[in-house]
Design a protein around this nucleic acid. Structure first.
Lengths: 350, 350
DNA sequence: CTGAAAGCGCTAACAC
DNA sequence: GTGTTAGCGCTTTCAG
């Protein structure tokens, strides 16, 4: 390394000294605050340029009690959905000049982990927190104990709506209705379901949409017309075989995610079942592979990127409001609308 | 919200006052530093507990000139590979008590964006930077101009090794050799290649491995035996059709990533080409779908998670060394070894 | 328009 | 063992 490594940080004081003004004036220049004579302003700007001065956001955060940083708690990053949401969050934050401090929660996190994650974010003075870990079983029980001690707004993704809390989710119920109604529309009557793990709120919502749509149509919904998977390819295969045995005369299946649905398509082929003639299949998520499978998969599309972006905008809006002491924006639950993408697996052949 | 929102932050001074000691003593307690009488220590701990005091990492960072924060610059987060690497980074950082400040680079970033990203990281006093954006074309040209002004260590992922710089990559060359040698071992002689975009360093490495292995075997490598894709499913299809026309008597194809390889399998089926009898196919990356395709895909596995973890460990090692003024650990290029996973698409039928 | 003083929350260095 | 002083790099408040 031929670095001339000027390890020492250049401070506002250095700039002030060289420019022959007070640090205050430099501060005014970098913040475009109040009046500084055009003359001094130019001089100071020149010095900043020459010295390559970079204001310390750390120091600024400390004295302003505001960090322009969002804490983002991530879960399941190794899967494509969460990482797209994170991408949306990061891009939206960037756009609004916020930074993202990231924390990951491992698969089996406990309330204790929650506390330590939140504490570490608070100790870094984040202005707000985005909680992307979906609600599973008792995963959000900590709200009762911990929420009061969290001094910044939090926005929750994929959480059961709660009075007074900011949250944003895909409208999974509506998505399921779209899927099942479509299957009804193409004339199917015996529509099975492979659900996600029913400890997940989103899985129960999708199942509820399936059941309600069938019942509204006056169709029976026998117990054996639904099996439970765990989102994975393997579990999709297992669930389908089970279903195939228990409900052999089904003519369609609505699968709670695309991974499992692709497994279904694969198994169906292996078993010589014709898709969509004998069995129509609809998935959920619209992952990249779905368009490319043989046959291509009809699915409900959820825009994770968008969910992330909206999450950021909502929480920053709330932060701004608190900051400016406006009437506090009231926390609300927001839902993103999914769309149906019809492909070969349910009868379209284009 | 029934929050008793104690908005004001509790400081070390509050604790000191209540406990009847100096802030210094509190500081010593929370850092487990030097000697504090067991008596005072207990008392202080009690007060900390009662007040729910949380030390400010911000203030600590400022006065220690050390933030225990890593800046991570991410590219292509919407794809599965980068997000797994990020996951590895986040988990490893967590384990070593570092936080992750994340910045995203969009698809068409310029040197100007690079400067602003780095500046914003520096202004937040990160202790080191992990640059995950792979080397593409002139994407790293900024090193010449900007590197000298960056006061912290940087670790680059998937970059052409450079003297004096810390970097870590998968050994793509070796991975390609594994793949092609395997195809030779099962008796194939006319092995085609679908490369990634050759502006990407990793793509050129994989191609080089393919070519070298064939030439070493004394086989000819005609120009028309290789076409170029852009990693996507669509481009894989296009590249394969092109290849099929230009080189109809090939008996195997090594594809630079799994997405494109899956497209190849799909097209092969459509064209009535038997895999692996007529055409053996090997991919690269080992994405989840590869094991589940019909036929399942032989592929080179790269452990992105591991790459992320190693990246963190390397850079933190370097940070520690600088911090303790040890003989500076010299920057090095490290390579992770890939492994071959043989499946049906190259002749194994288990 | 500009500067001086105080302070954000903490720790390093030194006293006692 | 414990307290005091100074200072990290910046902004806020108040004088001029």
């Amino acid at each position: 390394m031929s670095l001339s490594d000027n390890k020492k940080r250049i401070t506002i004081k250095d700039v002030a000294d060289v420019a022959g003004v007070s640090t205050q004036t430099v501060s005014r220049v970098i913040n475009n605050f109040s009046y500084v004579s055009t003359d001094t302003r130019q001089r100071v700007k020149g010095v900043i340029e020459d010295l390559g001065y970079l204001p310390s956001m750390l120091a600024r955060s400390l004295c302003q009690q505001r960090s322009y940083t969002l804490g983002v708690v991530v879960y399941g990053l190794k899967y494509i959905g969460p990482s797209q949401a994170l991408n949306g969050i990061a891009e939206a934050a960037e756009k609004l000049n916020y930074m993202v401090l990231m924390k990951v929660l491992d698969e089996y996190y406990s309330t204790k982990d929650v506390k330590s994650v939140i504490d570490s974010l608070i100790s870094r003075h984040v202005d707000g927190i985005i909680w992307t870990a979906p609600e599973i079983d008792e995963s959000h029980a900590w709200l009762k104990y911990l929420l009061d001690s969290i001094p910044v707004p939090i926005n929750f993704l994929a959480m059961v709506p709660r009075e007074g809390l900011l949250s944003i989710s895909l409208n999974n119920y509506e998505g399921a209705i779209l899927a099942v109604q479509h299957l009804l529309d193409i004339g199917r009557k015996k529509i099975a379901h492979i659900s996600g793990p029913l400890t997940w709120w989103v899985a129960t919502e999708r199942k509820r949409g399936w059941r309600d749509t069938l019942e509204k149509e006056g169709l029976s919904v026998p117990d054996h017309s639904c099996t439970e998977g765990n989102w994975s390819l393997t579990s999709g295969k297992r669930a389908f075989l089970q279903l195939y045995e228990a409900y052999p005369d089904m003519d369609a299946v609505f699968v709670a995610n695309d991974q499992m649905a692709l497994s279904v398509l694969r198994e169906a082929r292996r078993l010589g079942i014709n898709v969509p003639e004998q069995l129509a299949v609809v998935g959920f998520d619209n992952i990249a592979e779905s368009a490319f499978f043989c046959p291509s998969l009809t699915t409900v599309s959820q825009d994770q990127q968008l969910i992330g972006e909206v999450a950021v905008n909502s929480i920053i809006e709330m932060i701004q409001a608190e900051q400016e002491n406006l009437a506090l924006v009231d926390a609300h639950s927001r839902f993103i609308t999914p769309t149906l993408i019809v492909r070969e697996s349910s009868g379209s052949f284009d």
